[in-house]
Amino acid sequence: MDRVTFGRIIKGGFVNFFRNGVVSLATVLVISLTMFMLGSVLVGGIFLNGVISNLEEKVDITAYFKLDTDERDILEVKSNLEKLPDVKGVVFVSRDEALNKFLERHKGDELYMKTIEIVGDNPFPASLEIQAVDPSRFEAISVFLESGRFQNLIDEKSPGIKNISYRLNQSVIDRLSVILRTIKLVGFGISLILALIALMVAYNTVRLAIYSSKDEISVMQLVGASRSFIRGPFLVEGVIHGVISALFTIVAFYPLLLWAGKRTAGIFGGIDIYGYYVSYIWQISFILLLVGIAIGVLSSALAMRRYLKV
């Protein structure tokens, strides 16, 4: 194909796009909707993944030490724990840090501040936050703490019961984790079906737009236009539809994710999806552009096949 013909095909695509204003607008909107669905599936998946892994990190064991325990002893426990194959990591939280965390969390809350003042001394014990390789290994770790030579260092909630906190919330977290995974799976399935439906609607919109040109297509063939010369402008139009839809979708995600990010960050303390979106904007834009162009061009190409028979 020579340059003149190529230029004519490109120009033809733009001319078609603008002269079929209403149809073009409808097509762009439908493709945008499709991409919006696909984008939501992606972002939703990333968000839920973030929440689940965040939650799993929360499922750790916190062992509180008696107030008078020497820091060196605690650090020894820490290094011993780190040698265990079941342990992923151990973080030491000193008494001062625990107090600071508490003050930070309840900043501006008169009642708590007063309570701390009245108590006078730092009431918080030092602790070790232990992350297991796998939540199912908690038992082994806690047995190690409760029965080893360190057992006397660990604070007791009531006589005989060690203050090791995973017991308090493990079952809740386990159940939540199962629920979230189910939501993720079901949500993903439903969104995928919705996205597929949207994709088919997009294809059908393009097909209808081309159907309305089917007489034109046959006339073009009868006056001696080759198949590629007829198909070209429709494919160019598909690219234009895709690019505009992608830009539209990228812009539309900003306010939506800003809102969703504000809402969800507070609930789970998980990742900030708006921040995520903004920091990955180039990669996301690239993917959306690619998807948009693919939807536009493939729909056009598939729909054209039917009408190029004469």
Binding site: T5, N16, N20, E216, V223, G224, F229
Partner: peptide, 23 residues
């Protein structure tokens, strides 16, 4: 059977464009 979104001139020109003639 003219192409509805093209002017009379463009309709006539189309056959030549398709044949790859120069502007």
């Amino acid at each position: 059977r003219l192409l509805p979104h093209r002017t009379a001139y463009e309709n006539v020109a189309f056959a030549l464009e398709a044949a790859g003639k120069s502007e």
